[in-house]
């Protein structure tokens, strides 16, 4: 694989950015059209669990390679990256950690919910908080890491 073949392509970059923004906008805008309030999706504790699990999980697994991966992944959001098996692997592992983080966020929120069943009015909000955790995990997993995994693959470079 020629490492120098990564040339900047404006059309490719525009389409990438449009695709990523469109993905997230479609999800959020659809939620708003359905009558949802975007603020109800933001639960810092859930986001902290999911993002923290992904970040520190990858840091413990891939260490310095993960730190080198971060700027490459950010750059891959706007321009075509060079195929790299390690980065493709990290993106794939990130999906596993997202699943783990989402699952743990849900379970921990449900523990909070079930320990407060004597306050029925708060049950709905707590269940919604639990769901928002898995929503964040799925959004990152399907919207970001699937894209990064494919972008760093040889298939995307051909």
């Amino acid at each position: 694989m020629n490492e120098n073949q990564n040339t900047f392509d404006l059309t490719d970059s525009i389409l990438r950015v449009l695709g990523i923004i469109g993905f997230f906008t479609a999800v959020i805008f659809g939620f708003v059209i359905a009558g949802g309030n975007v603020i109800t999706l933001v639960h810092p504790a859930e986001i902290f669990i999911v993002v923290g699990t992904i970040f520190f999980g990858l840091l413990s697994t891939h260490r310095s390679k993960f730190l080198a991966y971060l700027p490459k992944a950010l750059l891959a959001l706007v321009r075509k990256p060079v195929a790299n098996r390690e980065y493709c692997q990290i993106s794939d592992n990130a999906r596993g950690y997202a699943a783990a983080g989402g699952g743990m966020a849900v379970i921990l929120s449900l523990i909070c919910t079930m320990s407060n069943l004597d306050d029925p009015e708060s049950v709905g909000l707590r269940v919604a908080a639990a769901m928002s955790g898995v929503f964040v995990a799925m959004l990152l997993s399907q919207g970001l890491f699937v894209y990064l995994r494919y972008s760093f693959s040889e298939n995307a470079s051909s």
């Binding site: 699943a99 449900l110 269940v127 898995v134 399907q142």
Partner: peptide, 16 residues
């Protein structure tokens, strides 16, 4: 509440 972690794990494992 008991079974929703299964749902979420099921959804998250799609496409591994």
């Amino acid at each position: 509440l008991l079974s929703c972690p299964f749902l979420f794990l099921f959804l998250l494992r799609l496409g591994n």
